[in-house]
Design a protein around this nucleic acid. Structure first.
Lengths: 196, 196
DNA sequence: ACCTGAACACCGTTCAAGT
DNA sequence: ACCTGAACACCGTTCAAGT
């Protein structure tokens, strides 16, 4: 116990990032101001600079927290025997997470100044479960290309869904399932053909 | 000729949108301020309000100009006899355009306030050449799902490429070609299977 | 050791005043 | 009819002053 300092902390880094993420999700990135975040944790704007270098670092920390949660949601523990089943499971969890955290997810791919963007390496590492499953499905020679095809499609699908770019109606749940099956069939066929 | 008005226009809507798009492409969206755009066309900030309601409308007009150019780049005139060839051509043009207009392209899918976002219908209409080719490739029953799979993948691929999310090296050109062929094979197989 | 009000530079926007 | 400087509200950020 050292609680005899002249001015004990009234907030914490975790509380600040959590508040910023809450505001981001409910009101969008533009609403995440130093003053609004400060108010949400019970201090004034300038006090945030005791814990966060600047707004860009705060936005980056929010992105990192989204990446952490998404990575946890996608982790395959344990893997099943069938790589196809694992890929279906990971893809379904991916879309579920994105639809529940739309503004947080967009932070990972939006056009942000480099200082605000989350670590590209951490974002790229989100594809690991798919790379692992593709290794089992199509073998080492085409695992990376196959995984990139699947992750690019999944990201593209949810990103367009969030942007309202699917205008012609139809069942998006079914369209998502169609895409997974098409790519599973396609990467197997392409990998087989080009290995001969 | 009516050029006797007390104060002839020194700029135009087209010049303003073009200047804004140039600044967006070279310095990013945050650099597109009313004052920087005004300076680029030779007037002061407040004068822009004679031609544009506000900054949100200006950003929307820039997005619309990107959509127009992209639609023109993708138009299939004429179509070939082989739908697969058309899909390869459109997909290649798509990636080329995006790599040449990265910040403009991101405007179409970024998390923008609704007032700044381009018309979702116009963005969605960019998929038409692919829908048409898929109609020929897999028939009416699965054309929409097949087109959505292809467009979602293409958007996802270039979006991740722009975000620097492909970290494991490899030839991205080849990975893009692999994805096209995998999806062509996959949507044909899926459409055939689920039609039986 | 932490928090705050005041202040500064910058932005979007309005408006009365100029030509 | 169009353009401008001045002004206002808001934002990120700094800093001297408070406890």
């Amino acid at each position: 116990m050292v609680g005899v300092s002249p001015a004990p902390a009234r907030t914490s880094n975790e509380a600040i990032v959590a508040a910023a993420r809450r505001i981001l999700e409910s009101d969008g990135l533009a609403a995440v101001t130093m003053r609004s975040v400060a108010e949400a944790v019970g201090v004034r704007g300038p006090s945030l600079y005791k814990r966060v270098p600047d707004r860009a670092a705060l936005i980056r920390a929010v992105g990192a927290s989204v990446v952490t949660d998404l990575a946890e949601a996608l982790a395959l523990v344990p893997e099943t025997e069938d790589a196809r089943i694992d890929i279906r499971v990971v893809s379904a969890r991916y879309r579920t997470f994105v639809l529940r955290n739309p503004n947080g997810y967009r932070l990972l791919f939006d056009d942000l100044p480099p200082a605000e963007a989350p670590d590209p390496g951490a974002v790229a590492a989100l594809g690991e479960p798919i790379v692992g499953a593709m290794l089992r499905l199509v073998g080492p020679r085409h695992a990376l290309e196959a995984a990139r095809t699947m992750t690019a499609w999944a990201h593209g699908f949810v990103s367009m869904e969030l942007a309202g770019a699917f205008r012609l109606g139809g069942d998006l749940e079914a369209a998502y399932a169609f895409g997974i099956e098409a790519i599973l069939a396609g990467v197997s066929a392409s990998a087989t053909r080009s290995s001969r």
